[in-house]
Amino acid sequence: MPPVKKIVMWLLVIFLLYAILTSPNSAADIFNSVWDIITNGVKNIARFFDALLRG
């Protein structure tokens, strides 16, 4: 991993920890929203391939 990527990764981790520690309710709401987006995306991809295979 190049040094720039490592630095950006650490900054992201530090920011996430800061966000969670300073406002845990907002961080939980954001996490729930992101989780809903991911699960809906996976469900929609599964529906697409199911419809594609049914012909």
Rank of each mutant, 00 (worst) to 15 (best):
I37Y: 11
M9C: 02
P24I: 03
K6Q: 12
I14W: 06
L11F: 02
L52P: 01
D36I: 08
F48S: 12
S33P: 02
L12F: 00
S26Q: 06
N25F: 04
P2S: 12
F15I: 06
R54M: 14
N32I: 11
L16P: 00
K6F: 01
L16Y: 07
S33H: 04
F31H: 03
T39D: 13
S33A: 08
I14V: 07
L21A: 11
M1Y: 06
A19L: 13
T22G: 00
A51G: 15
F15S: 06
I38C: 05
A19T: 07
K5H: 08
V42K: 10
V34F: 04
D29F: 00
N44G: 10
Y18F: 11
G41C: 10
V8M: 07
S26P: 07
D50S: 12
T22V: 09
K6Y: 00
Y18N: 05
I30Y: 05
V4F: 02
L11K: 07
T22A: 00
I20F: 06
R47G: 03
L53W: 15
V42C: 07
I14F: 00
I38V: 13
R54S: 15
I37V: 15
R47H: 13
G41K: 03
V13A: 10
D50T: 12
R47I: 12
M1A: 12
N44H: 12
A28V: 09
G55H: 12
M9S: 09
A27F: 09
R54W: 14
V34D: 02
W35C: 04
V13H: 04
M1E: 01
F15N: 01
I45T: 15
T22W: 02
S23K: 09
S33E: 00
D50Y: 07
A46Y: 09
S33N: 11
F31N: 04
I45S: 14
K43P: 01
P24E: 01
